[in-house]
């Protein structure tokens, strides 16, 4: 009985949070993407940045050449250094699959910059 009431409580609070508008899907600008990468990765000094057209993901390159992916999780952001990620390019977009279980593939529409970033990531455009 306690379990059922608790489960109902979970649904109630989740639903209430949704109804009250705690459901943001924020977008990034380049400065925010750089800051997110620098905050998340110890010693990472961001330089170049490529922002996805919808502002929902970004690639940031550090001064050591390493490239970080910034992608959303709910109303927050997740950052990963892209070591060993599978990258495919086409139609002005990159599809990135970090070598990590349960990390969702991320599509970045980069337009003309896609080929350059694919090269930086070691993938053919």
């Amino acid at each position: 009985m306690v379990f059922i009431l608790s489960a109902l409580g979970v649904l109630l609070v989740m639903g209430l949070a949704r109804v009250m508008g705690f459901a943001a899907d924020p977008v990034l600008d380049e400065a925010q993407a750089r800051r997110r990468a620098a905050d998340a990765l110890a010693g990472f000094r961001p330089q170049a940045c490529a922002l996805a057209g919808d502002g929902r993901a970004a690639l940031v390159q550090g001064d050591d050449g390493a490239i970080a992916l910034v992608r959303p999780l709910g109303d927050r952001w997740v950052v990963r250094r892209l070591d060993g990620a599978a990258v495919s390019a086409g139609d002005g977009a990159l599809l990135i699959r970090p070598a990590e279980p349960m990390f969702p593939p991320t599509r970045l529409a980069l337009g003309a910059a896609a080929a350059d970033w694919a090269r930086r990531l070691g993938a053919g455009a």
Binding site: A7, V10, A17, R18, G74
Partner: peptide
Amino acid sequence: GAYDWRDTGTSLAMGL
């Protein structure tokens, strides 16, 4: 403060 309904759902599922 801040909430996100998806994050809260996960937190409460973990509690359950």
